[in-house]
Design a protein around this nucleic acid. Structure first.
Length: 700
DNA sequence: TACTTAGGCCAC
DNA sequence: AAACGTGGCCTAAGTA
């Protein structure tokens, strides 16, 4: 029998011994502890600890945790459910693939009658009802939008239920999503970790263990029912507690609550439908294109072998050795083999071009052309995952596979099903427009109000040349585009000078001219820096927050040190060459340098979070409206790429309907400058044609 | 064997 | 001394 306290202590000792390399010190009964022995002991203790915890958990199963194993119990549950306005819900499954795995049990918490059930439906052992029977009994409750459901990461469970023919409705609150809005810096959103960290605020004092910690790689259908009950019923019990605690916080923050209720919570259904729709992949095209790429790669490989010998061309380390040690190419003390460095070396060696070709081809083949068809599910569609709360700014992210970073050549693998079209609507220049709105800068808003090209107008004003010299494709316009990004993201003068191919002094002059031309933009950026220094957070138009805990103190220190340096140099700003100025004490330089990075990083992130986050707010609202519109037509969204919504629509779509879709996007939020949406139609993604041209072509 | 980290690179 | 925001995926190489 293991005594938990001694067990824990011994565990820590062994762990420490392993970590600190204190092997051979005779830890275990004066016997010398070898590394292997220590690891074995550690694993054995971990195993024992796990079974110990599980035994302990089962022994302490609360009286109001109940297994539902018979028809009578199920009937009683259904009766009791009718008294509830909302419930907490969770599914246990064989795995995480929502298109392949299956539900093995459901837990439900009833808040007013205060009990928590686990209904096993496909465990390998123990008395239980059939899944179909249980789901049919629960279907009226699950599909009733008037009965609220509280879940942690609802999207997963909704998908799992769809897999078994039930479309859950009435999502009241998702504790995973609410947590992300309340603290986007949370290190882990696993329910058990949140319970361990915040449980004391809603009645859970003890540490909660994650599935991984308790069961490792075991499938949940292997878990005995007494253990399953105490684990699974606690899930919904905790979810309920978390819900109430989160609501207390949201009710004190009405803007955030509105963001949660009207935007993020509502968006879960959109996200589910979008993922369920999936993408149709042209397998023939992918196979042929793959062969083509393989041929080209083989050619490049032959040239690389000739040039660099028998090494792995995918290995930066092996490449650097050949390039900088054997061939003695100039390395600038970086020894990098990235595109930028290689391009600069292109004149030095004939093999470099082949290497660049090889990189591009293998990336395209390995990440997209070969990889995407492999992810097609049994329904013949590719279902990526879209996460609405994975980014600190509020943007969507996408993974498994990432559908937001397909290069144009890979997008061509995606086609419309028979009788359908792909339609893509994107917000034109949404971030600069938001900057124009937020800064209220009169001159910056001008091109939008007058319907002129933004970059041409800016270039003409900043560079003080006639607008005719700043048209599409001109250097002035290109430079302005880079320059505006630099302003919005707070790029350093060094980086900007590199990007524009000018000197640091010229870059400084460019930025100075920009801010002189648009003083409102400058004032806006400074006011954000000021705000984040005072409040340690910034927020978007819809109240989405990006928090920077600890910034206030660092910013104060930074500004104080800067003032100190300025009083020595008698300048308004710290000179960029301050390291070379003898009069500044070394310790002051070092102190200043230490806080400079983090503080300026927060300042860049804060400006960016407001602009990027507001764009995300607008897109999310647009998606809600587009989704509702599509639903009425029997069409479907299948992806969003930050400023773009992609959907499958009928081949018979009319110009009026396109107009109505654009209105869904445009009415998401009214800014002080007009918004613009561009729509393209296509049979194959990446071969889009502007709507006007499409209808002209298809009218004939 | 299964992980983590680093270098690199795709998107907006 | 370090140099631009938000993400995710690939391979190599080292470690548990």
């Amino acid at each position: 029998m293991i005594n938990t306290a001694t067990d824990q202590a011994r565990l820590l000792d062994v762990k420490k011994a392993i970590e600190q390399g204190e092997i051979g010190t005779g830890l275990d009964n004066n016997k010398t502890l070898t590394k292997t022995k220590a690891l074995d002991l550690y694993r054995a203790l971990m195993g024992q600890r796990k079974t110990g915890i599980l035994r302990d958990m089962v022994a302490k199963t609360p009286a109001n945790y109940l297994l539902v194993q018979t028809v009578t119990q199920l009937r009683q549950l259904v009766d009791d459910l009718e008294k509830e306005a909302f419930v907490a819900l969770d599914t246990e499954t064989t795995g995480l693939n929502v298109y392949q795995d299956e539900i093995v049990g459901l837990s439900i918490s009833l808040p007013t009658t205060d009990y928590h059930v686990y209904i096993p439906v496909a465990h390998k052992t123990g008395k239980q009802l059939k899944r179909e029977l249980v789901l049919e009994a629960l279907r009226p409750m699950l599909e009733d939008p008037k009965i609220g459901k509280v879940l942690h990461n609802a999207k997963f469970d909704i998908h799992m239920l769809i897999r078994h023919g039930v479309r859950m409705r009435g999502l009241l609150h998702d504790t995973r999503i609410a947590m992300a809005l309340l603290n986007e810096n949370e290190p882990s959103y696993a329910l058990k970790n949140l319970a361990t960290k915040y449980g004391k605020y809603f009645g859970f004092q003890e540490e909660s263990h994650t599935f991984e910690e308790l069961f490792g790689k075991t499938r949940f259908d292997n878990v005995a029912l007494d253990v399953a009950l105490v684990y699974a019923a606690k899930d919904t019990h905790v979810t309920l507690g978390l819900y109430k605690w989160q609501m207390e916080h949201l009710q004190k923050r009405s803007k955030l609550q509105q963001l949660h209720r009207d935007m993020e919570n509502a968006l879960v259904d959109v996200c589910v439908d979008m993922e369920q729709t999936g993408l149709l992949i042209d397998r023939t095209y992918a196979a042929e294109y793959g062969e083509e790429l393989r041929t080209e790669i083989a050619e490049a490989e032959a040239q690389l072998q000739e040039a660099f010998g028998d090494i792995n061309f995918n290995s930066p380390a092996q490449l650097a050795k050949v390039l900088y040690d054997h061939l003695k190419l100039p390395d600038n003390n970086k020894r990098s083999t990235d595109v930028k460095t290689l391009k600069a070396l292109q004149g030095e060696h004939d093999g470099i071009k082949a290497l660049l070709d090889y990189r591009g081809l293998t990336k395209l083949l390995g990440t997209y052309v070969d990889a995407l068809p492999e992810k097609i599910q049994t329904d013949g569609r590719l279902h990526g995952s879209f996460n609405q709360v994975q980014t600190v700014t509020g943007r969507f992210s996408s993974n498994d596979p990432n559908l937001q970073n397909l290069p144009p050549k890979a997008r061509k693998l995606v086609i419309a099903p028979e009788g359908m079209l792909i339609l893509g609507s994107d917000f034109s220049q949404i971030e600069p427009r938001i900057l124009a709105h937020l800064s209220g800068d009169e001159h910056f808003r001008e091109p939008y109000l007058l319907g002129q090209d933004l970059y041409s107008t800016l270039a003409s004003q900043v560079f003080k040349v006639p607008i005719e010299e700043c048209g599409d494709g001109t250097t002035y316009r290109k430079k302005m585009k880079i320059g505006l990004l630099a302003v919005m993201y707070g790029t350093s003068m060094f980086t900007l000078s590199q990007q524009l191919g000018i000197s640091v002094e010229e870059a400084q002059r460019f930025i100075r001219d920009f801010f002189t031309t648009y003083p409102g933009v400058h004032a806006f950026i400074l006011s954000v820096h000021d705000f984040v220094k005072k409040n340690e957070y910034v927020e978007t138009i819809d109240g989405r927050k990006r928090r920077f805990p600890g910034h206030r103190e660092q910013a104060k220190a930074y500004d104080a040190l800067a003032r100190k340096i300025c009083s020595i140099t008698m300048t308004d700003e710290v000179p960029s060459n301050f390291w070379k100025i003898q009069e500044i004490p070394r310790s002051l330089k070092e102190e200043y340098q230490k806080v400079k990075g983090p503080v300026e990083s927060v300042r860049r992130q804060s400006v960016n979070a407001i602009i990027q986050g507001t764009a995300a707010d607008i897109m999310k609202k647009a998606l809600l409206q587009v989704h509702a519109y599509c639903k009425g037509k029997g069409w479907n969204l299948f992806a969003t790429v930050h400023d773009e919504a992609l959907m499958l629509v009928s081949e018979q779509i009319t110009p009026v309907e396109v107009q109505e879709l654009e209105t869904c996007m445009l009415s998401a939020l009214a800014l002080d400058v007009p918004m613009k949406v561009d729509t393209e139609l296509m049979y194959r993604w990446g071969e889009g044609v502007k709507k006007a041209e499409w209808f002209q072509r298809h009218a004939a």
